[in-house]
Write a protein that binds this DNA or RNA. Structure first.
Lengths: 165, 165
DNA sequence: CAGGTGATGTTGATGTGTCAACAACGGTAC
DNA sequence: GTACCGTTGTTGACACATCAACATCACCTG
């Protein structure tokens, strides 16, 4: 990220502060998911992403979401979600059913086993999240995290809808 | 992440602000790497992680780093790095060589092709990083990002050295 | 109502990451 | 100097993600 071309260079390279922030962010972005995966895999035998899927379902009234809604909520492609839900279905954590008269829509429903799994795993997970993130920074910084994260997400949205679509 | 157990519950659930920040962070953490991958893959035919490897090497005097140092700098396991560098080596981007008289240490060196690749890709990549992150938030928030990211990284370090090691 | 189009999912091939086992080397203790 | 031990790295088997192709259905348009 530092200067590379020797002479004619109109690239807006990052200054030291900007670079420091970016490097720190990249580092954390690379490590945090792995850490969450490890803990959840050990405690509950699920990936962080699978946990997310279950969590999203568990927070609805009927434990059910349409596949595409679920993909949205978990920031995943429909393809990834479909593969993952297939595996989870074969493990008995969720159930899938076509919704008649609505095109190809499919409902994914959390089973009792799935609900039991998250009920068991959630407390430890929350503690973990607090120890790594929420309790590790003060309230102002946590507010900043939210602002920044939402802003970045917007930019990513813009990028996907702007150029080609 | 909301309440799940109906009665006896000493789990320190997240309050709405905390939850909002965490959800936003997770969402961004899941999407940002994919976005960077896509852009770099299109522009330069490399993964973000491969780009990182090349970038780290390009910033040393002799374009060379020991495998374990490189693993540190890119926050990867030695195993992952070894696989990735193998592929990069077969594409002619890096070269590997054992360092004699130093145990099993191996030096990875960036080739001219690798250097050319990053010289070509870096400008667009920097613009991308600015548009998604650095220029998208104000300086105070960027400082907060750095503080928070470094804090989280420390916590992850602690976790790895504390319990078992 | 025939044909096209967009929305929603699934599938299979291929690439990449992870985990555990192994390999190679330098040191240290005795 | 021999037997361990820690460090450093590689490998192979398996799990998972991605990408492109396909499938299915509702709806629109003439």
């Amino acid at each position: 990220m530092s200067r590379l071309a020797p002479v004619p260079d109109d690239t807006p390279w990052l200054d030291p502060d900007e670079r420091g922030a970016w490097v720190a962010l990249v580092r954390t972005m690379l490590r945090l998911p792995a850490t969450l995966d490890t803990q959840l895999q050990r405690e509950a035998g699920v990936t962080f992403f699978e946990y997310l899927v279950i969590a999203m379902l568990s927070e609805t009234d009927d434990r059910t979401l349409q596949m595409s809604e679920l993909a949205d909520l978990t920031a995943a492609s429909l393809s990834r979600l479909s593969h993952v839900v297939s595996r989870m279905e074969s493990r008995g954590l969720v159930r899938r059913e076509r919704i008649p008269g609505t095109g190809r829509r499919t409902a994914a429903t959390l089973t009792d086993e799935g609900l039991a799994l998250i009920a068991g795993a959630a407390p430890d997970h929350v503690v973990h999240v607090r120890s790594l993130v929420v309790d590790a920074v003060d309230r102002d910084d946590l507010a900043a995290v939210r602002r920044v994260a939402e802003r970045i997400s917007e930019r990513i949205d813009d990028e996907r809808s702007g150029p080609t679509r």
